[in-house]
Design a protein around this nucleic acid. Structure first.
Lengths: 355, 355
DNA sequence: GTTAGCACTCTTGCTGTTTGAGTGCTAATC
DNA sequence: GATTAGCACTCAAACAGCAAGAGTGCTAAC
């Protein structure tokens, strides 16, 4: 009985592989000729008929061959596909390319987006770490003019962000210094999302004026975490999708491109999806309508043992799953290794000094 | 004799207007019916034949109507088109919308890009001010970790930029302070591109170590001006182009989109083109091959009486020139007014304080 | 100089036909 | 009983032929 299932799967496997490559419906005779399965076209025909009944194949019209259904792709990624390693030289090259970006997390991520798009010829998206779940290491306010101040924020992971902010009134250098001291004294090591509560009630010796300023800075902090989520996602290879026949239709292409432009939406998608180390969302499993002919493969990346963002790739449902998954596996592990190794060393250095 | 030329121009004008609207070749009968020129189709036919001979019209094939040539568009923008004001309410709305962005030049520009794309339904591009031709008001180095430093640069126009840089070795707070003092003492008011020469030979009382650091900062300064030109151009409405039939061809669309992604190339185009307050480049007048079916309309913007960047819009050659030029005129003058008025006031404030 | 009229051209859309890839069913074979 | 060869059938895609229609250029009349 298992033999039977086995043969069906073999045929299905062949059809999926062929369709991924050619994007054309495939018929029994072609399979028989192209893939030496040791059975005749007629037999394959019968099996294909079964597979269609079972929901794995779709016939666009009677006289065409068949194409894999979404269910088939699901089965394929869950059970059939065989992952392989990348070319050793490519791996080595990528590994080396990271060295020049590893110091700055955002650059490393941008680079990752570029590499994904280049390797896969699909569209890559990468979410930046969400500040709120990171720990603050250092804050510095830099006066610009009048009430305008640049707030430099460094996380424990040495991610540097800076925000131009505007207070309600002018602030003196002395006040800035005091604020900087207070902030760094109390905030150090706190998670960004807790900064408000960490500060409340702990500061006593402030003038009214100083307290006002502090409150203002705190509220700006919150505002930044909640509202200023712009540029939270990098993408690369956006127009790659136009190379695939399923997007020759200009309306579909525009729909796709427009969503990719909407970084906020992408951020949402990525955070929804990134539960597992590696996640595959096929076709209509995507909540976004414009992605219903696409598949999304994501992987998370970590800093200090915690998942803080995702890298992903979007291509047509007829995607080269084995290869893409291999790529994503390699890249996410490489990214994690590079980021964490570098930061471990940095922290060690830091500890040495503090002692 | 002028009468004759006049009639030809009237006919040409009608054809251009019609084609801009419909994107369809237009025939003599249609013109006679649609535009009351008081002459018969046959006469128009003869005139059209002349116009074609003169290079203003093109006939895709014998049985089709005619379409305007690039030469015709050139004539149109140079002599025929009539500019009009925007709707007063729209103008007012736009004017008000600037108030929330005017403090930060880059936000104001991003906003401008958005408004252009929205008003015109074409693709907008906007170049950021080139630092090298601006004057430095303030530099501040902020220590991050070890040899990593954030360099905050404020221009006379209150444009704030910041760059993460990496020195060859660790720098102490004391050294940073000294550097900050030196830099601000000597650099103040200098043009960025002259900063190197301004500093040379003027500083004497430095230790070897301090001098090394200073040299390093200067060379980084140069590097930033020359090499770190990323993000020098904002674009908006990128996919708008897909709404126009001339870009239904996926290959052309991809070509266009890819160029828009290449911000460096766009920066080059904009700086090549922005000689005049308002510039119109039609079709193959564009140097870029991918833009040969496009027209580019740019305007410069100023700060302190000097042109420091451009705003532009790209659409199909069959572009609604009168409207787009009106929009660009209004927006560039509005942008200039807002930026400069705000900064004048700011500077006045600054002067008051310095006295 | 202008225009009506007409023959001519060429695209577009429609229709029917052919071709071929592919199927499902049946009967013969292993 | 499973497999396969054979055959009739289906249907999209490609092609040819045809009519319609938009547009032209030319000529002759106004």
């Amino acid at each position: 009985m298992d033999d039977k299932r086995d043969r069906k799967l073999k045929i299905l496997h062949s059809i999926i592989k062929d369709y991924i490559e050619t994007a054309e419906p495939i018929g029994s005779r072609t399979i028989a000729k192209k893939y030496n399965l040791g059975i005749s076209a007629a037999t394959i025909r019968n099996e294909m008929s079964d597979l269609e009944e079972m929901g794995f194949l779709i016939q666009p019209h009677t006289s065409a061959g068949r194409i894999p259904s979404q269910k088939a792709y699901r089965l394929y990624v869950d059970e059939l596909m065989k992952l392989s390693n990348l070319n050793k030289n490519v791996e080595k090259e990528i590994r080396q390319s990271y060295t020049q970006y590893v110091e700055e997390v955002d650059k490393a991520l941008k680079h990752t987006a570029r590499v994904i798009a280049q390797l896969t010829s699909y569209t890559s998206i990468v979410s930046l770490p969400q500040m709120e779940s990171l720990n603050c290491k250092h804050v510095q306010l830099v006066p610009i003019v009048d009430e305008r101040v640049l707030m430099v924020v460094v996380t424990k992971e040495n991610i540097i962000n800076n925000y131009e902010i505007k207070l309600t009134r002018k602030i003196s250098d002395k006040e800035i210094n005091k604020l900087n001291n207070i902030l760094n004294h109390v905030i150090k090591g706190a998670m960004f999302k807790n900064i408000g509560s960490e500060l409340t009630g702990k500061i006593n010796d402030l003038t009214v004026r100083e307290n006002e300023l502090l409150q203002e800075v705190i509220s700006i902090f919150k505002d930044i975490l909640i509202n200023r989520r712009e540029n939270l996602v990098y993408s690369n290879g956006v127009t790659n999708i136009l190379n695939y026949p399923e997007f020759y239709d200009i309306v579909k292409a525009k729909g796709f491109l427009d969503i990719i432009e909407e970084k906020n939406k992408l951020a949402e998608i990525l955070s929804d999806v990134s539960k597992n180390a590696l996640n595959i969302v096929i076709g209509t499993e995507n909540e976004i309508n414009e992605f219903k002919d696409c598949s999304l493969i994501t992987a998370t990346y970590r800093l200090n043992g915690e998942d803080i963002g995702s890298i992903g790739v979007i291509g047509p449902t007829r995607m080269n799953y084995d290869y893409v998954v291999s790529v994503m596996n390699f890249l996410s592990s490489e990214l994690n290794k590079q980021l964490n190794d570098y930061r471990l060393e940095e922290n060690k250095k830091g500890d040495d000094i503090e002692q």
